[in-house]
Design a protein around this nucleic acid. Sequence first.
DNA 1: TCTGTATTTAGAATAGTTCTAAACGTGGAC
DNA 2: GTCCACGTTTAGAACTATTCTAAATACAGA
Lengths: 138, 138
Amino acid sequence: MKHDVEELLKTHGVKPTPQRMVIAEFLLDTHSHPTADDVFQAVKDKLPVSLSRATVYNTLNALVAKGVIQEVTTEAGRVRYDANMSDHHHFVDIETGTVIDIPAETLNQIKLELGDQYKVRSFHVTIFGEVVSGKSKE
Amino acid sequence: MKHDVEELLKTHGVKPTPQRMVIAEFLLDTHSHPTADDVFQAVKDKLPVSLSRATVYNTLNALVAKGVIQEVTTEAGRVRYDANMSDHHHFVDIETGTVIDIPAETLNQIKLELGDQYKVRSFHVTIFGEVVSGKSKE
DNA sequence: TCTGTATTTAGAATAGTTCTAAACGTGGAC
DNA sequence: GTCCACGTTTAGAACTATTCTAAATACAGA
């Protein structure tokens, strides 16, 4: 077994049901940053019972809430999921939409000069946090 | 007139209709990073005729395509619009969802240490570009 | 075994956005 | 000035992604 999915779920406080196991296993095995529907299509035949989309969404939301996976939003109107929880950023191929993980060290080392493999068209930094003092700029 | 909206649209190749004028004017006047529906609500009574949501979406998409405004996606499932085209990033208040512009210089100068006004919880860099060589990591 | 609670299911509902077809407006050609 | 062609706008239908609902199911613990 490549990943001990059952153990991973337990240690994050998620009860390991068959549905959750196959979903988590699929996410851990891919680097493709799938959408909810990608996940549904990929795992729906791996269970002896039929699988509901609601279960896929419930599971993905639970896994995000418990810190097992994270959401990635690179395009409007759809959420992608990523089981890589190491410190990394994303490179989006603007021709294909492919999302590629960029380790944080790489980014630090070369200061957004990613070498000739990646031609950077634009990049955007989004920071999440809390505004402490007043002085709201709206 | 605070902005010469008509001139701005013309120089970007967008024919300045009344609908497009009020939408562009509203966007230029705010720093609130409104959604399409925010825009619709804000301008629908500023025209002598009724305004269709389709026109709002058409206009926003046209303005993005012509480089008059840009899309901002900080949360899943909805797009925000920003007429500030200077080089900047975004700070998202995780309690309120408020989006605040951070000038690129600020970010460069202080290397993500934004001072005590902003408590940084996490940040994410998304890079858009093209993968040039092979060696796809999927 | 019983029972309470969490989970899953199918399908309805909702939200955001795009599409469609008809009506409208407007800038040249005459 | 009139007409026409074409781009724009409109209302509402359609579509896509996601959440909600209510009923069925599974399962841990008494």
